[in-house]
Design a protein around this nucleic acid. Structure first.
Lengths: 110, 110
DNA sequence: GTCGTACTACGAAGTGCGTCGTACAACTTT
DNA sequence: AAAGTTGTACGACGCACTTCGTAGTACGAC
């Protein structure tokens, strides 16, 4: 069984979280995870980039501590680390996802 | 009297705000503005970079809509757009500044 | 075992960002 | 007027990031 490395909650840094969520594509992934089912495979996201690029963005999110990734047979299940982030940076994830929701409709935000 | 352009509150975009505040130096400026006097000149910030770089970071913050800059004689007075940001993205600035405060002591965060 | 699926790894190309140095402009002080 | 202070403008450099294509790995289905 393959496994992927995740940072411990205490090791999650604000810099990397903000950098990760500054990208609209990665915010889109986080939002879909927060709205839909708890765990979704990478293929469940309809992103306007190639698979390579997609893999890259998921990795950035995982290494930043925003999501977890676990192999499940053929696929990888992605989950938002909402509780961990709430412990580490209270209110941050909620504020960003909320802001994204209100902001999303003005310009054609990707 | 020289003036500097600022984005309207409605024109402030989440992308640029997050990108602006993803940089520790710029977060440091925002935090000092939020803690100290309302208006502070650029020189009041003891930043470990040259004047050119400092100017660049203040500009990024202003163009993102995070601060205002107004000429006052020789200097430029900087203010945090806390109310504007609260209107546009409720809870976001507070969460980031709070997170930065709790995060600041672990590693030698610049 | 062979094929299809889901995703990764690696290298390449293009772009953007942070930093700096030098030169310059506006204002204050002397 | 001359000198000092405060900050800007512009160009350059190095580094990191985004994107992609190709090749490859792991797993499930046949």
């Amino acid at each position: 069984m393959r496994t992927l490395p995740h940072p411990a909650t205490e090791a999650v840094r604000l810099d990397t979280v903000l950098t990760a969520l500054a990208d609209p594509l990665r915010r889109r992934i986080a939002r879909q995870l927060s709205e839909g089912d708890a765990a979704q495979a990478c293929g469940a996201f309809d992103l306007p980039v190639t698979k390579s690029t997609s893999t890259h963005h998921f990795r950035v999110l995982r290494e930043a501590g925003v999501i977890t990734q676990h192999y499940r047979g053929n696929k990888i299940l992605n989950r938002l680390r909402a509780d961990d982030l709430e412990d580490r940076f209270p209110g941050l994830l909620r504020a960003i996802l909320l802001a994204d929701g209100t902001n999303r409709h003005d310009p054609p935000q990707l």
